[in-house]
Design a protein around this nucleic acid. Structure first.
Length: 444
RNA sequence: GCAGCAGUAGCUCAGUUGGUUAGAGCACUAGUUUGUGGAACUAGGGGUCGGUGGUUCGAAUCCACCCUGCUGUACCA
């Protein structure tokens, strides 16, 4: 190979993409196994759809542009624009529309999958991440919405969170719809800006949000955000409506009564939950963590919610004349794992291999015999996978966290025993090969 | 997108108002120990000082633009 400095490939990763190492992956596996268990218990089917979809089937269109609408990663094959999915809900709607006749109604499915977003990454947010989705399609019954909240809560607690570590907040999009109607806020742009402003109450508080509802707001970095230009009266009306602790919204009352039947208490009715998406039509929910999360530099960051969802009764009908109500919830798994790692000290079974040291390459046959004996007893083991002095082999074993090394050199071969060295205590003992597996199990 | 801060060895960072051959700790390699890890000591390798252009006799240091990272903000189907 020609080595030319100028053509050396970059070892940096593309913006917003990261390597994930074993500790995180093991915790992720743990979370996933909890999810699967709970989903089976609640009667959901497992589904996988492809990473790519036709751009227009996941709700992105490209009229005369060189590139499809920003936010997605896209490319054009011979005929069509394809995009990497940006969530699992849009592909589900497509799947349901495609298989409508065959599917049970309602159709309950869950899905785990990587999604991609072509946007600026933030703290704990990347351009590639793992999402978990649970949806109930084909019923308007609010039992489905309620059960999604209960199920998310069960998953979180199974993963080790305490009741006070998280809150499921619920509200309904109908509340805003009514409010906008009464206040005669009809322009789409104004209502969208209002919704986005209200979505920030948790983070900014009412005083700042009121600026966003009015003329606009300058944040502490000096950036200025244009407001929704509502009148004072309108703002006051919104604040008083959204500050009510009790609700007269029918769908919320119904869900709360279902929660009671389930004896589910860890929710909070919070009319300031908005969720930016336009497609929601009914109850909406959001899952928030109640503890501080730090980044790798130890700074406390604005972590936001780890997931949420709601009812989207019109999404499937985009594909045709299907009247197909639906509701769903998504969790950002990587973010959940990131937070869990800080909250709990996971003792994960990562059994590292026992290392059989190599003294003499002509003894490979003997080493392999020992190796096979250990592996057949279900002990993680390996012959030192390199070459070098014993010291180097010991350093290797130490570095990978091996519990013990096995020495089988000329001295041992004479006696027929092997030397087992416990790397934690440093003790060495001479052991018959037949007893080796049992002795190691005492250490591991 | 906007704003603030940052980018010097694999990692964390120092580098005085611009001045020889750019440093430290950790990590790595070898040795002190040719069959013994975590500790110590000795030696060694490793940098176009994020990039490009400019100012200057001379730039890691000053200026401009760009790239990347962090944080906030905006957007987020």
């Amino acid at each position: 190979m020609v080595k030319d400095k100028k053509t050396k490939p970059s070892k940096e990763l593309p913006l917003g993409f990261i390597d994930r190492e074993e500790k995180e992956l093991l915790i992720r596996d743990f979370v996933i196994s909890n999810i699967k268990e709970v989903m089976i218990k609640y009667g959901f089917q497992y589904l996988e759809t492809p990473s790519f979809e036709y751009t227009d089937s996941i709700g992105k269109f490209l009229p005369d542009k060189d590139r499809p609408d920003q936010g997605v990663f896209s490319f054009k094959d011979e005929r069509n624009w394809l995009s990497l999915r940006y969530d699992l809900t849009a592909p589900l709607a497509r799947y349901v529309a495609k298989n409508y006749m065959e599917l049970p109604k309602p159709f309950k499915r869950y899905q785990l999958g990587t999604v991609w977003r072509n946007e600026k990454p933030g703290p704990g947010r990347f351009r590639e991440f793992l999402q978990f989705d649970a949806d109930v399609v084909g019923t308007g019954n609010l039992q489905a919405d309620a059960e999604l909240c209960v199920l998310i809560s069960e998953i979180l607690e199974k993963c080790g969170l305490d009741v006070k570590d998280y809150t499921v907040k619920i509200s309904t999009r109908k509340l805003l719809d009514d409010l906008f109607k009464n206040l005669k806020i009809t322009s789409r742009e104004q209502s969208l800006t209002t919704m986005r402003a209200l979505d920030k109450i948790d983070r900014l508080g009412w005083a700042e949000v009121k600026k966003l509802l009015g003329k606009g707001r300058k944040d502490k970095s000096g950036d200025y955000t244009k407001g929704a230009n509502l009148t004072n009266d309108q703002i006051i009306e919104i604040e008083s409506k959204l500050n009510k602790k009790k609700t007269d919204m029918e769908d919320i009352k119904e869900i709360l009564s279902i929660f009671e039947a389930y004896n589910f208490k860890n929710y909070e009715y919070n009319p300031t939950i908005i969720r930016g998406l336009e497609y929601y039509t009914g109850p909406i929910f959001e899952v928030n963590l109640n503890f501080e999360v730090k980044n790798l530099k130890g700074q406390i960051i604005q972590f936001g919610s780890i997931g949420g969802g709601g009812r989207y009764d019109n999404l499937v009908s985009n594909f045709g004349n299907l009247n197909c109500p639906a509701t769903g919830i998504s969790i950002g798994l990587d973010r959940l794992v990131f937070a869990l790692m800080q909250k709990k000290d996971f003792k994960l079974e990562t059994s590292r291999p026992v290392v059989i040291c190599v003294f003499n390459t002509t003894k490979t046959k003997e080493y392999v015999q020992i190796l096979k004996k250990l592996r057949s007893s279900n002990i993680s083991a390996e012959i030192y996978p390199g070459e070098g002095k014993l010291k180097k082999q010991m350093e290797y074993a130490n570095k990978i966290g091996s519990p013990a090394v096995i020495l089988y050199g000329d001295d041992e071969i004479k006696t027929g025993n092997v030397t087992l060295k416990n790397l934690e205590t440093g003790n060495e003992s001479s052991i018959k090969i037949e007893d080796l597996a049992n002795e190691i199990k005492k250490i591991v």
